[in-house]
Design a protein around this nucleic acid. Structure first.
Lengths: 192, 192
DNA sequence: TACGGTTGCCAACAAGTGTTGACCAACAAA
DNA sequence: TTTGTTGGTCAACACTTGTTGGCAACCGTA
């Protein structure tokens, strides 16, 4: 342990490490925290369960390593003001459909305290700063960003987790057309 | 087992039975399906775990008995057409805050297949028929009801489960003021 | 009184969990 | 070669889970 930062220093076991992370992401996304067992993850990664412990300490450490979220929020200030709602929806749809990690975090956030706190952190560090660039009154930023979160997470919940049939049936363009005005209003409309 | 229906036929053990159900509701709401253990529920109800099995067969039976949801949906046709959005939000806020069962079902729906299917059933049998009374085009009813579900469940998720601070901080009037127009549009506005 | 059913507790089972330590094979540096 | 480090497996640990069957106390009825 001489290189404690900046240099990953490729190890011979890197393949195994990433195999574990991949399997973990998949299992956490499909089963949630409790039902995603270390044994099942190890089986998916074709290694022994004890390797998971060696490389990631314990189950919480594995989860922390597997689920690292970067929303890659765009600069909403760069869009025409009347278009930020649409920009937000499309961005979130992109994120969510290319990346099972978001579903994993949502599932875990519901059953696990640490997961819930992680979601709070992502909201605070990634969504809030973005909203700051479009909201008129800085004092209203948390409220408006929170309202956007309710709508976006509600869509993710019903579409990717609960799978309500009519929500699953919606095509991308419909979602954008319906949700964009909602987010637009939450972000920029005068406070009611 | 001679009275298989209609007459509850009060038993001496009724107090225990309802104590179990109460404890079960609380635990399912707080912990979700997997982490709400029968032992913990029995401890809360001050009885032996084996009693739970005797009265409710198994854990799934207990969940089915504990979580029976009646949304008590109002007849939206009785409201002025421009007011159905507001009526929906206030009704759901009432339901959700007086009744921990809804939070229980939401938590379980995320981690348990049977729970998810139960939510789909509630949507189909209780929300859909209500929406039918306000939507112009019957063909659009599922879509519009589904959109309402995304917003309402998103609020419940972020407020009662994830507890995002700015969502928790919202007072009832703010929620109504912000969400009513959204639901109103999802229900009655012309399809975009 | 005796008796059958109900209510309840206790102890145990089998299975599955996260986690640990002993042990072996391959490799790299000396 | 020898030595030390790394990657990996195996078997077991301590514990928790849902679930079961036996047994004692109580009840209303006959």
């Amino acid at each position: 342990m001489n290189d404690s930062d900046s240099k990953p220093a490729s190890r011979r076991s890197d393949a195994t490490r990433t195999a574990i992370l991949d399997a973990a992401r998949e299992r956490f996304a499909a089963d949630g925290y409790e039902r995603a067992t270390i044994r099942a993850i190890a089986r998916d990664a074709n290694i022994d369960p004890s390797m998971v412990m060696r490389y990631y300490g314990n189950k919480e450490g594995l989860f922390a390593a597997a689920v690292a979220i970067d929303l890659q929020m765009p600069d909403l200030g760069a869009f025409p003001r009347h278009d930020v709602g649409r920009a937000l929806v499309t961005h979130f749809l992109d994120m969510w459909e290319e990346n099972e990690v978001l579903t994993a975090l949502l599932r875990v956030g519901v059953t696990n305290q640490a997961g819930a706190e992680r979601m709070q952190g992502i909201f605070r560090d990634q969504l809030l700063p973005t909203a700051r660039h479009v909201c008129p009154d800085p004092e209203q930023v948390p409220t408006r960003a929170a309202l956007c979160a309710t709508q976006v997470l509600g869509l993710a919940l019903t579409r990717y987790v609960l799978r309500l049939p009519p929500v699953v049936a919606l095509v991308r363009e419909e979602i954008v057309a319906w949700l964009a005005p909602t987010l637009q209003r939450y972000l920029t409309a005068p406070s009611p």
